[in-house]
Design a binder for these strands. Structure first.
Lengths: 220, 220
DNA sequence: CTGTGTGAAGGAGTTCACAGCG
DNA sequence: CGCTGTGAACTCCTTCACACAG
């Protein structure tokens, strides 16, 4: 199974296929065609077949894909076949919400710990998970060999926290802080900036017509 | 100022430019070159110039861009020059966190109301904002002429809530529920699925080397 | 004869290279 | 002489078309 460079756009679609397949397995649907997967996901059937072809030939010609088999293949491809350990750094409102949601709704990951610097938050619980002081962070990451971190800390602290995480052995970070971080090439950081998402959404909340109207009201 | 189709990738970068320009204005830096903007944002200088060129010629040759001027241009392009009204539907942990963050940190939008269906949440406060029952939603959207909504409701309720929002006049929705929604063409919906983000991140937490090793351990 | 797997064509966006203005 | 603005080349991804397996 060769593993050339897979486009990022393909990787972003895998979890979407995964969710649909999970749903189909639960509904006892054994087989699905790329055409039907297309309906469920909104992507074209050709694209789905091409995406899967990056990793092998998982379908049966004339029939389609076996849902459970394909689901397990995708789990293996992403690396979710063994519950992936993750930690959360920053147990503010967002970190709390994300942690709670992940624990209850994401069966493929294992939130091993949550950390915060604020002593008023440390010691509180997210479901059964106690929030630990950041001073324990490096030790836990090293001992549990955690490779993935979710970082929801204030922008000012993000770089420092990221450095610590990377030093301790973290390889991938989901960063909610609105800053561009410096990091070595062998680490992967994905930024989720909700303010940016909202602002680009707002761009699309006015039609082309309205934009032309507004922009021609130039008065400077 | 012609307004042909601007690539989505360009629109996603505008808020990033905006944030950097805000920072520069605050530091009393009057002028910046595309090269220096490149350093700040991580995008190439050529790309930044091309992006801006979609909307006009805002720079001065031999000098660069006037920060405050460019900032105001981008605000106008996105549609943030008048505080954009938004509502939040679903005041669970995530909705609460997002609302709080937006009110305190995003000076360009105005959260006019938050709604929830759960009577134990209705009446509670997010900073000074009282959470209203969803039954008030349509009325507020129509009266205040809100065009943008943030939707952080359970997946099962998402389609129904979206339908109501669109009927009431909402034109753009930031959807945190992990479902693909049906909606008319003149509405814009942007999905933010944090579970997907985490899962594609996990793909990148193992190196190519490790993947090859793990995938060759096939035993079925 | 249905639906996958895939080379080939097409399209979208990024990088290159440089003309042209301040 | 520096840095913007932009056509042209290029790269990457998506769509098309079809060979081929079940």
């Amino acid at each position: 199974m060769p593993h050339r460079l897979v486009p990022q756009s393909v990787i972003k679609r895998l979890p979407i296929y995964l969710r649909v397949l999970d749903m189909l397995v639960q509904r006892d649907i054994d087989v699905i065609s790329s055409k039907d997967l297309s309906e469920e996901t909104g992507f074209t059937a050709e694209q789905i077949r091409k995406d899967l072809a990056y990793f092998g030939a998982f379908g049966t010609r004339g029939t389609g894909y076996h849902t459970e088999f394909l689901r397990d293949k995708i789990l293996k491809i992403i690396g979710l076949d063994r519950k992936t350990k993750v930690i959360v750094v920053g147990a503010g409102h967002l970190g709390f919400a994300f942690t709670r949601y992940t624990i209850t709704k994401n069966p493929y990951v294992n939130v091993v710990a949550a950390f915060d610097i604020d002593s008023s938050v440390v010691g509180s619980k997210i479901l059964d998970l106690e929030v630990l002081p950041v001073s324990d962070m490096e030790q836990v990451v090293e001992k549990e060999e955690v490779k993935v971190a979710i970082m929801s800390v204030p922008a000012e602290q993000a770089q420092e926290v990221a450095n610590k995480l990377i030093d301790a052995g973290i390889r991938a970070i989901l960063n909610f802080a609105p800053v561009r971080l410096d990091y070595p090439e062998d680490v992967y950081i994905h930024n989720v900036d909700l303010t940016n998402e909202l602002q680009s959404l707002i761009y699309y909340s006015t039609t082309e017509q309205e934009k032309i109207g507004r922009l021609s009201e130039e008065q400077e």
